[in-house]
Design a protein around this nucleic acid. Structure first.
Lengths: 198, 198
DNA sequence: TGAATCATGTAACTGGTTACATGATTCG
DNA sequence: CGAATCATGTAACCAGTTACATGATTCA
C-alpha cells in the first residue's frame, strides 16, 4: 500500500497538513508503515491534482502557510475501494534475523550488543503501545475496535520477541564464543564443500 | 541490507548459482528478506566485477549453462565487515494492520475474509518453521545456534499473531457489524471535525 | 499434453530515500 | 543561546519490482 493511499486513509479521520500526516507515521503508523516528507508532500500534490483531496491554505506569520488537506467524496470512495482490494499481507524485513542467521560469523561481544540494541527497540515499542492502550482503556481516547486490535497485536508480537530473546540469547552467544562449527546447509542438495579461500 | 550483501552471506555456506540463491529467498530467508531474479542476477554480476565472488560456468545440454558462484577471500571479508556494521533492525510492513486500523470502514464479510487469509498465511509459516525445527531436532540437519534461534523466533511471533487473531477477531468483526462509530482521533490536537462531503 | 522446473538474463518503470534549501518561533 | 519544532518543498538518486524473452526437460 503506497503513501498516497495511506494519506487518504489518515484524512478519513479529518483534515490535516502534510506535517500533521507525518506525525501519524511517527506515532501510530510507525509499527506497520513508513513515510517521510519526501514521499508525503508529492503524494498530497498528486492527490489534489486527481481531486481526491482538496487543499486550503492557512497563512501564518513567519512560516510557510499551512496547507490543510481534506478528503473529497471521490477520495473517500477511492480509499474504501483500495481497502477492499488490498490483500492483508504482513511482511517482516529484519536485519536482526539476518544477523542471527550468521551469528557464527560474529564476535560474541558484537552479538551481545545486537541483542541489547534489539531489546531496547522492543522496549520502546512496548512502552509506546502500553501508553496508548492505557489511554484507550481509561476512556481518555475513543478508538474503533480495529485500532485497539492493532495495539494489542503489536504488543503481543513485541512481547513474544522479547521473551524469545531472553530465553535464548545466552545460548546463541555461547555458540559464537565456542567458535561453533560454521556449517550452514544449502537450500536443497548438499554440495559437500569445505570452506574456501581463493 | 541489500541483495548483494545477502548473496554474499548465502555464499558463505558454499557455492551456488543464481537459481540456487533464489531458493534461499523462497525457503529460509523468506521470513525476513526478499529478492527476485531481477535483483539477484544483477547483484551477482556486480559482485563478480568487484572480485567478491568468482564465477565458473558449467555447461548443460538444452538449457543455459549453470553459472556457479563462489565467495572469494575479499568477499568473505566484505560480508563479515557488513555484518559488524549492520544495525539489528526489525521492520514490519503490514497491510493487514492498515486494514485493521480502518476496519470500521470495511464490510464485516470482507473483514472476516481478511482474518481467514491472514491466518492461512500464518499457518503456512508455522508449518514451514515446525518442519525445519523438527529436522534440526532430529539431528537430520546440523545448523548453527543462530539459525535455530531464528526458527524459534519466527515460530514464536507467528504463534503470537495467531493467538491474538483468535482471541479478538470476533470482537473486531462485531464492531464493524454494529457500524461502529468511525471516530479516529488525530495524532495530537483534535480538530473537532464531523464528516464531510465536498 | 500441459504444467512445473530448470536456467539465464534485460529494460523499463516505480516508489521511496537522502540531501538540500529556507527561515521564524518557541522552549529549556 | 542553542536545540527542537513548525512548515514547506525539490531534485538527484537508487534499489528493487514487473514484465518480457527464450527454451529444453521432467513429471503427473
Amino acid at each position: 500500500m503506497d503513501v498516497k493511499t495511506l494519506c487518504l486513509g489518515i484524512l478519513t479521520a479529518g483534515e490535516a497538513s502534510g506535517y500533521d500526516i507525518k506525525k501519524y507515521f511517527e506515532c501510530t503508523f510507525r509499527h506497520f508503515a513508513v513515510a517521510g516528507y519526501g514521499s508525503i508532500y508529492p503524494a498530497l500534490a498528486e492527490l489534489t491534482e486527481k481531486g481526491l483531496v482538496t487543499c486550503r491554505e492557512e497563512p501564518q506569520t513567519g512560516r510557510p502557510a499551512r496547507k490543510i488537506y481534506r478528503l473529497t467524496g471521490d477520495g473517500r470512495k477511492a480509499f474504501e475501494d483500495s481497502l477492499v482490494r488490498t490483500p492483508p499481507r504482513h511482511k517482516v524485513r529484519s536485519e536482526f534475523l539476518v544477523l542471527m542467521y550468521f551469528a557464527h560469523l560474529l564476535p560474541p561481544e558484537r552479538l551481545d550488543a545486537i541483542f541489547d540494541e534489539r531489546l531496547a527497540d522492543i522496549h520502546s515499542n512496548i512502552e509506546m503501545l502500553e501508553d496508548y492502550r492505557q489511554q484507550i482503556e481509561s476512556g481518555e481516547e475513543r478508538v474503533p475496535t480495529g485500532v485497539e486490535f492493532g495495539v494489542n497485536f503489536g504488543l503481543a508480537l513485541n512481547r513474544a520477541a522479547k521473551d524469545e530473546i531472553h530465553k535464548h540469547r545466552d545460548r546463541v552467544v555461547d555458540g559464537a564464543r565456542r567458535g561453533e562449527d560454521a556449517h550452514i546447509p544449502p537450500a536443497r542438495e548438499s554440495h559437500e564443500n569445505t570452506d574456501n579461500e581463493d
